[in-house]
């Protein structure tokens, strides 16, 4: 999360100005907007500093002074700015039209009863999204899912990656998640689904009960139970923390394949990591890894498991050591 570093060292006034700068931009990426919400919710002092700075930015006096300042510089440099003032006025009008025509809001959707929306993150990003029913979904890096709400259906399809769901209780509207051929059905609960690189998914329950269907088999899971859907649905116990490990950038590997660990690393790494040898891919790994820090994981793989790491231009390749 390199974006954090941009404002971590700033004092409050500067951080507020930084966020007004970010949020006044024409395209605010979802992960940056999420960081903004985290910052502004963290402390009422942050929120008040932001309100003051935004009021200054939006104020009529600043708008007026800005126009005057530009007109002055256009007099000095009439050749350069000859058409620029007129052009800028036109631009402001277009922006204004969008503004008045309807609320210019993130993710605006037609006001219909049902809708579909796709949420996506790139490696290293995380995204928290609130759904219309009050449910919340947190996407890990390199994840894609689509949300479909219509009538009494609340349905999500997880296409790639991993996500944590905190579902608002509603007995009249079951909530379902499709993930790699398995089907998870809930009423109100919190659970995590991780799509595995080799196919199938891991479903882990943090609150309430979840019904998992896969290969014509049905299994109900309670708190602290998880199941892999790539074989028989045999629940295993896990230690229920407040949130899944990955939300802090950690991954607890308990005798899992290197492929799975590399899959977790790739959700954070800006350079993809690839395994070059089939028997290496199946190698079992255990330990707690800071998967958000690619270099650290690679270093421990090298030290503990003797895996050789080759850095190429656009890829990091893992091979067996000589």
């Amino acid at each position: 999360m390199h974006n954090l570093q941009a404002f971590e060292d700033m004092d409050r006034e500067e951080a507020a100005a930084y966020w007004v700068m970010v949020m006044s931009g024409p395209n605010v990426p979802a992960h940056r907007e999420r960081l903004f919400e985290t910052w502004i919710s963290a402390d009422p002092g942050n929120a008040m500093a932001y309100a003051d700075c935004l009021a200054c930015y939006d104020s009529a006096s600043l708008g007026e002074a800005a126009l005057v300042a530009r007109a002055k510089s256009s007099q000095h440099r009439s050749v350069v700015w000859g058409g620029a003032l007129a052009a800028s006025l036109a631009l402001v009008m277009i922006g204004g039209g969008m503004w008045f025509g309807g609320l210019r809001l993130p993710g605006a959707l037609p006001a219909e009863k049902g809708y579909t929306q796709t949420l996506e993150t790139t490696p290293g990003q995380m995204l928290t999204a609130r759904l219309p029913d009050g449910s919340q979904v947190v996407l890990n890096g390199d994840t894609q899912l689509s949300v479909h709400f219509a009538g009494r259906d609340r349905a999500i399809t997880l296409r790639r990656g991993e996500a944590y769901f905190d579902i608002a209780h509603d007995v009249t509207r079951p909530f379902t998640v499709e993930a790699a051929g398995s089907h998870v059905r809930v009423l109100g609960t919190a659970f995590n689904i991780d799509l595995l690189p080799a196919g199938g998914a891991e479903v882990a329950v943090y609150r309430g009960r979840v019904r998992v269907e896969a290969h014509h088999e049905v299994r109900d899971l309670g708190v602290g139970e998880r199941v892999l859907t790539d074989g028989a649905l045999i629940p295993a116990a896990f230690d229920v923390a407040e949130m899944p490990d990955w939300q802090g950038g950690w991954f607890e590997a308990d005798n899992i394949s290197l492929t799975r660990l590399v899959g977790e690393v790739n959700r954070f790494s800006s350079v993809p990591v690839r395994i070059d040898a089939p028997d290496l891919a199946a190698r079992k790994i255990s330990g707690r890894f800071k998967v958000s820090d690619t270099d650290k994981v690679l270093k421990s793989l090298k030290q503990v498991y003797g895996i050789k790491i080759v850095r190429e231009e656009n890829v990091i390749v893992l091979t067996k050591s000589l």
């Binding site: 907007e33 903004f36 502004i40 993130p106 609130r130 759904l131 029913d133």
Partner: peptide, 24 residues
């Protein structure tokens, strides 16, 4: 608004609506 739409920052949403209302 957020009952029918996915909203990432509720603060940003409410402040934009306020700016709009002041303008109108």
């Amino acid at each position: 608004y957020q009952q029918d739409n996915i909203v990432i920052s509720l603060h940003a949403l409410a402040l934009r609506i306020a700016a709009n209302l002041i303008h109108l």
